[in-house]
Design a protein around this nucleic acid. Structure first.
Lengths: 218, 218
DNA sequence: AGACTCCTTTTGATTAGCCAAAAGTTTAAT
DNA sequence: ATTAAACTTTTGGCTAATCAAAAGGAGTCT
């Protein structure tokens, strides 16, 4: 059995580099886990010892295929739990992330399988993130961030890349829900802002925030 | 926030003495948690420090009202989770105890409240154990163990006081399910056994096992 | 090359829990 | 009143994970 800590390190490495394309810097990993760089270094050594990561000192760290498999399963548990909390228990999408952060380390495969069945083998969680299948494969979609859209584009919201509760509440309050179609009214690079309309409202977002919203053209 | 370890110590103290009638011996507590007596002693000191238990060295330990309140909430979480796993996810009663042992430490009050609502504010878990209400009160029933029944008695099974998976599977396989009515065919103190019939089968139990099955007269 | 900056790694300490085994208490039996 | 048995507590040591701060590498700029 892996400790919650180890699972979190693996999960963070996966989320920082889902395709396994690059080496992740120690500092980047440390920041995402909110630990000091020294703590990350020492855990990286432990993980390398266990064959879960490859470490090139001073350059970075990368999941081995074994480590990646474990990480994907943690992510699967997280996302299924999130969707279950929203669809079955009726919780708000803005509050399930924290809850799933805890549950992902303790729910058994048996429970995950049953939740998955009950949910009808969903492909995406409440934030639009893909749910890895039991065998570890990930559905892929090519999405564009809202910040790269142009005036006049009609797009559908496909993913919110920010789990922060306040951000999600803001999105919800402004009609920025998954599947909702929006129109880009105005984009102003200088003012660093983008104006969109949902069928209800007009909303102005900074480009940094718009960069966390991913869309599909319709 | 209490650690899982602390929650488990409090829960064990509660389960070993649900009424708060007696002092629990260090060794008894240690055995129920599967730790050495020395470990229990040192944790007891920590708990006493925190005001969660009273400790009379060499005599025993007892929950304070603060400690009892916390313990009852752990038990509530455990039992609601168990029932949820059985009634909503369709798991077998013999396997939910272990799962709930983990989940009880991480599920939020929000989730427990929603599970409780979905289940319709149940009074007992799948093993017949009472579920404390959110304010900490416990439903009480007066039950008799099967081992104290006499030949000819007709009784209904109300509780199984043994969470062991094998025991629960055995019970299930032999029709010893909650609410099922059984008749005591024969009791033999010398042979240390009791013979009962469900509407299907005749089953012989040792008196120790029968002592773990609680019943109501019908 | 030297100096500087920005990382990363190392070092030394801390905390929660655990165990094994030594030392100490209580109680019951002679 | 001793002794022995049974239990509890103390002591010393271990592991996982953390931090703060010192030391060490890599790359950049002159």
């Amino acid at each position: 059995m892996l400790s919650s800590t180890v699972e979190n390190y693996l999960k963070s490495l996966f989320l920082l580099d889902p395709r396994g394309e690059k080496e992740v810097a120690t500092g980047e990993l440390a920041k995402s886990l909110e630990v000091t760089p020294g703590s990350a270094t020492s855990m990286i050594k432990t993980l390398a010892q266990a064959g879960l990561v490859e470490h090139r000192p001073h350059y970075g760290v990368r999941l081995t295929s074994q480590g990646r498999t474990l990480a994907v399963h943690v992510v699967r548990r997280h996302r299924i739990v999130e969707l279950f909390l929203v669809n079955v228990l009726g919780m708000d999408w803005s509050e399930v992330h924290e809850e799933a952060e805890q549950l992902e380390h303790v729910v058994s495969d048996e429970v995950i399988t049953r939740m998955d069945d009950l949910l009808g083998h969903p492909s995406h969680d409440p934030h639009g993130d893909p749910i890895p299948s039991a065998d570890g494969t990930l559905p892929t979609r090519t999405l564009q961030t809202l910040s790269f859209c142009n005036e006049g584009d009609n797009v559908s919201i496909a993913r919110i890349g920010n789990q922060n509760t306040e951000f999600l509440k803001f999105a919800e309050d402004n009609g920025l829900l998954l599947g909702r179609t929006i129109t880009i009214k105005n984009k102003n690079e200088i003012a660093d802002s983008i104006t969109i309309t949902t069928h209800e409202k007009e909303v102005v977002l900074g480009l940094a925030a718009a960069g966390k919203i991913e869309v599909e053209h319709v």
